[in-house]
Amino acid sequence: MRRNFIRLSAGGLFLLWCAQGQAQNLVVNTGFATDLSSWTDFGSALPADGTRVWNADDVNAIASSGSAQFTVQTAASQIGLVQCLPAIGEQTYEYYARVKFLAGQTDAAARAVMEIAFFASADCTADSSGGQGLGAVVGTAYPLSDTIWRGIPTNAGPAIEGSALAPAATSSAQVRIFVEQLTGSEPHSVRFDQVVFHNASGVPVTLMHFDVE
């Protein structure tokens, strides 16, 4: 819900305050309803290193929704997706994702990561502050399972989230989700769903001038 308040001062200055829900998720196609739209490839583009595909498996078992499945199979390679979103400097952002570590894989050979990087440019192309992220090693952070969804961070959800402070010059942020191969060449797959990134600091006050007769 959005509320606007306007106050008139003697000098013709209006104070406009816009209050929106702090927990509003900024990610587009957060739950991969029918495809991987609004996301672009992150990590290796070589087919031999792995794949990114839509999967019908959904964290809430919704038949009309799905998830993103990443498979990686080359040591030190990363396979995932990224999204560029507007961000405000000196604001705290919180984030989390739900993940599934599929059974039948080798423990501790790969990890799932959600990472945030802030940029001074509006299109996430210049002056990155570096990534701040959370990871979970396959088979170590959680048992492998074809049925149970876990989280990044542990038990991720609205009350348990990662946190990152945007530098003062920030204009945008990249949300990155990916699987990284740590050792070996055996394929490892992880599914991502319910990817959340939101401003936890609230919306700042904006001052606007109007001519008053």
Rank of each mutant, 00 (worst) to 15 (best):
I6W: 03
F210I: 09
V205Q: 15
V212I: 14
I177V: 13
Q24Y: 10
E94N: 15
A110Y: 01
V137E: 07
F118H: 03
L165R: 13
A87K: 00
S145Y: 02
R111N: 08
P153C: 05
F119Y: 11
L85F: 03
A156N: 11
A75G: 09
A168I: 03
F178D: 11
A159T: 14
A110G: 08
H188M: 06
S201Q: 03
A68W: 08
Y96D: 14
N199M: 07
S44N: 04
R7L: 15
R52M: 00
I62L: 13
R52P: 01
G89R: 03
T34H: 10
G202E: 01
V59F: 10
Q91N: 08
T74W: 12
T206W: 04
A48W: 10
A156D: 11
L26F: 01
V59D: 06
D123M: 04
A136R: 13
P86K: 00
A61W: 00
H198D: 05
Q20W: 13
Q181G: 01
N55S: 12
A45K: 10
G104K: 04
V82G: 05
A166C: 02
Q78Y: 02
S163M: 08
P153H: 04
P47V: 01
A173C: 05
A45C: 08
N25H: 01
L16N: 15
L81T: 02
A200M: 05
P143A: 05
G89Y: 00
G184C: 08
S145G: 04
D146S: 06
G139M: 05
T30V: 01
Y95P: 03
R191I: 00
A112M: 08
S171C: 10
S129R: 06
P167C: 07
I148P: 02
G135D: 04
F101W: 07
A61N: 09
E213Y: 13
D57F: 00
F42M: 13
W39G: 07
V59L: 05
T106E: 11
T206E: 15
P167M: 02
Q73K: 12
L85Y: 05
E186F: 02
P167F: 03
A110N: 03
F178H: 14
T170E: 04
G151C: 12
F70G: 10
V203Y: 14
C124L: 00
F210Y: 09
I160R: 08
R176T: 04
A168H: 02
A156M: 09
A97V: 05
P143K: 04
P167V: 01
F42L: 12
W17M: 15
V99K: 00
V212D: 05
L46E: 15
A56R: 15
